Amino acid sequence: MRIAVLQTGRADLDGLAEAAGTASDRGARLLITPEMFTTGYNVPGVPERAQRAHGDWLDQVAAIARSAGIAILYGFPERDGDDVFNAAQLVDRDGTVLAKHRKSHLFGDLDVRTFTPGSGDLAVVDLDGARIGILICYDVEFPEAVRALALAGADLVAVPTALMRPYEIVARTVVPARAYENQMYVAYANRSGQEAELAYCGESCVVGPDGADLARAGSGEELLLAEIDPARLASSRAANTHLRDRRPELYGALTTTQENAR
């Protein structure tokens, strides 16, 4: 399956339609956008602009997916009662919602003052024979979150993100490590440009289960394409047996709170 990753700094559904059409014309089956694509991340008024999951943004993205014939994973602020979540929703090419994830690990003041943390739901769904999991930005920096998706059978983890400087190490080192240690593909869709004091580093990427880049962006706007190959995944898993060689009985301390651990 070919996938596409949209690196952009714009909150632009017309731009999404153009990218979806281009990606589909190039054979992509899935398009992944950055975190908080519909509004921007570090911008005023996000809570006021938040929508319910089945609101107008979904209608527009579903129409784009149907028109272009491509599944789309898009980031948006989700209103649910009094709560606002940093969310990402996967829409199939017929406009059907396949899955949604709410960011579970909130990074810094901006996230904490704006969003309610998600409950850590495991969003893993089938798309064209591939098992796809979803995380958002800081989530992927926690090995437990990615491992949980691996144990749930994910072949690809798609990560809308808003990674800013000076944290390039996440895109360059952490993401490849997550792909290798969990024997999966990881697609990391970052923002570009600048919002107020935040300068986004770009470097969106698709990394294979061997930890090697299949595609990597620079710092500007870009549309990446890469192949998710089941045969390559099976071969890598046969050679690198991390999941099979786990010893869960040794890891009980991972579920102990810091206070109890002390």
Rank of each mutant, 00 (worst) to 15 (best):
T116R: 13
G118F: 15
G120N: 09
D121H: 14
L122A: 12
L122N: 08
L127W: 06
G129K: 01
R131I: 08
G133F: 04
C137G: 07
V140P: 01
V146I: 10
V146G: 03
R147E: 14
L151Y: 02
A152W: 05
G153W: 04
L156W: 02
V157H: 05
V157I: 13
V159Q: 02
T161C: 13
A162I: 01
L163C: 06
Y167Q: 11
I169A: 15
P176G: 10
P176Q: 08
A177F: 11
A177R: 09
Y180L: 07
E181Q: 12
N182T: 07
Q183A: 13
M184K: 09
Y185C: 15
V186K: 10
V186G: 12
A187V: 01
Y188S: 04
G193F: 05
Q194A: 11
E195P: 06
C201E: 08
C201P: 02
G202T: 05
E203K: 14
S204F: 07
S204A: 13
C205Q: 08
D210M: 03
A212P: 00
D213Q: 10
D213H: 13
A215G: 04
A217K: 03
S219H: 14
S219A: 15
G220C: 07
E221A: 15
L224H: 03
A226L: 03
A226I: 04
I228Y: 01
R232S: 11
S235C: 12
S235I: 15
S236E: 12
R237L: 11
A238F: 11
